[in-house]
Design a protein around this nucleic acid. Structure first.
Lengths: 251, 251
DNA sequence: CGGATTCTTGAGGTACCTCAAGTGCGGTGG
DNA sequence: CCACCGCACTTGAGGTACCTCAAGAATCCG
């Protein structure tokens, strides 16, 4: 089973959290750090392609991605799948599940991932003891909402070419901001099937659309992923500009 | 100007808030009620069709709808419009704007609306002084996210008929839960242009699709709105079931 | 080396789109 | 009171951006 590929790691301190070194994130007070350390219950490794949790699950945990790529999706009863958003380092997974009873979407790892695991029970005490962290959670939820707004605009109104350009510009932007993409590591680990299910297009048409974009020189499609060569061109095509967030919170 | 139709009302107490009588909402402690009263800065009346705020605005306020219908939308530079979600009594408007600098969507009134106005500045002190209310805000943001997930699934994967069925079942459900729809008041005040811009379809095709639904007896289209006759049939068509939330928070 | 997965391409079909015209209603003003 | 205008809704005809089906090439993995 896929579960085999999930494996619980050792309990290491938040002090050495690999995300903290990224200047994109806001600093914690010592008290907040201490609280987070208690709230945290371990680390999880998920293999590429493994399910982290499934729609309908009642999961006792809450995660923050430490490394790797993943995605959230929903399916209809006959199997049609819509990818809702991608998970990158620093992103929180399972907030909906922590607040409502059930998860109403699924999450799958795209590459190998390392996740920081939190108990969902003490969530309320986080609001009581550390209003700053509570505020951050609202910030995170509002941010996700804002991204979904843009995706909905994309799927509802943009043409196939515009949608593809938007998605790749968006992922490139987020990849750079989160640190998974650098000038050396430029590969975004998607298959064309993922792109298709994100854009609401068939695989065939997605392929033809990506081909056009590659022909224009804006990107290169490699074996199992792609490389953005000209993010500005993609943004112009999609009529989209990222809104930069300096010092975003996390956890 | 549209602004003419916006008018500030008198400052009345939260104690008589028309929403509190609805058992769907959770009760406040006396302290929370007292705080809310201070946080609140007035009441706003918006005429049907008026803009409540616009993408890019830096709005100092935060609203909760008290009565009427409205909607959130985004547009592309060439005018294509995507309706993201509808605003019903009890819904919060402008949380994104309160947390980030700018609003990245617009809001328009569908019918005449009454809105409760809050200052956005003391938002942080809300988290400090009333963790329960802070938790509620996260609840609200997570709830909106969950709705957007479903909309995205709809626009990305469902066929025209399924999308229309989903939207009307969804609105009917929310209308009943919020109290704007009763067994006497059953009219949902939309035009087919709104439905089209929500579903990502043209007006013409939307019309043909709604006609089919009406023919099947699931709904009736009236002059400037529609009436759901058979919500279960719509849900079945859309392969969707609402997830009931008893005792939701607000403000 | 064989099988599975991903990507590619062509051919034909269809679910949507645009354009265009016409109906019916409600409001406004002469 | 009627004439007019504007908006919402309707319907038909023709176009196109997607889709499905099908088959082949390239790559990865055991």
């Amino acid at each position: 089973m896929e579960e085999d590929r999930l494996r619980l790691g050792v309990h290491t301190a938040c002090l050495v959290c690999p995300l903290r070194s990224n200047p994109a994130y806001r600093d914690f007070s010592p008290e907040e750090l201490e609280f987070t350390r208690h709230f945290r219950s371990g680390e999880l490794h998920a293999g590429a392609g493994s399910a982290i949790f499934h729609e309908g699950n009642q999961n006792a945990h809450l995660y923050t991605a430490l490394s790797g790529w993943g995605f959230r999706y929903k399916t209809l009863s006959d199997g049609r799948r819509q990818i809702l958003n991608y998970i990158l380092p620093g992103d929180m997974i399972g907030l909906q599940g922590a607040i409502f009873e059930e998860m109403n979407h699924s999450v799958e790892a795209l590459t190998e991932m390392r996740l920081c695991v939190f108990e969902r029970k003490p969530l309320y005490s986080l609001f009581e003891k550390h209003p700053g962290l509570g505020y951050d959670l609202t910030w995170i939820a509002a941010q996700e909402e804002s991204i979904l707004d843009e995706h909905l605009l994309s799927v509802g109104q943009r043409t196939a070419i515009e949608r593809a350009a938007y998605l790749l510009a968006f992922l490139h932007h987020r990849g750079r901001a989160s640190g998974v993409l650098t000038s050396e590591r430029t590969l975004m680990p998607l298959t064309q099937a993922h792109v298709a299910d994100t854009l609401g297009l068939s695989i065939v048409h997605t392929n033809k659309t990506l081909r056009k974009l590659a022909l224009s020189g804006a990107l290169r499609w490699l074996d199992r992923g792609c490389e953005v060569l000209d993010p500005d061109a993609l943004q112009r095509l999609a009529k989209w500009t990222p809104n930069d967030q300096r010092r975003r919170p996390f956890l």
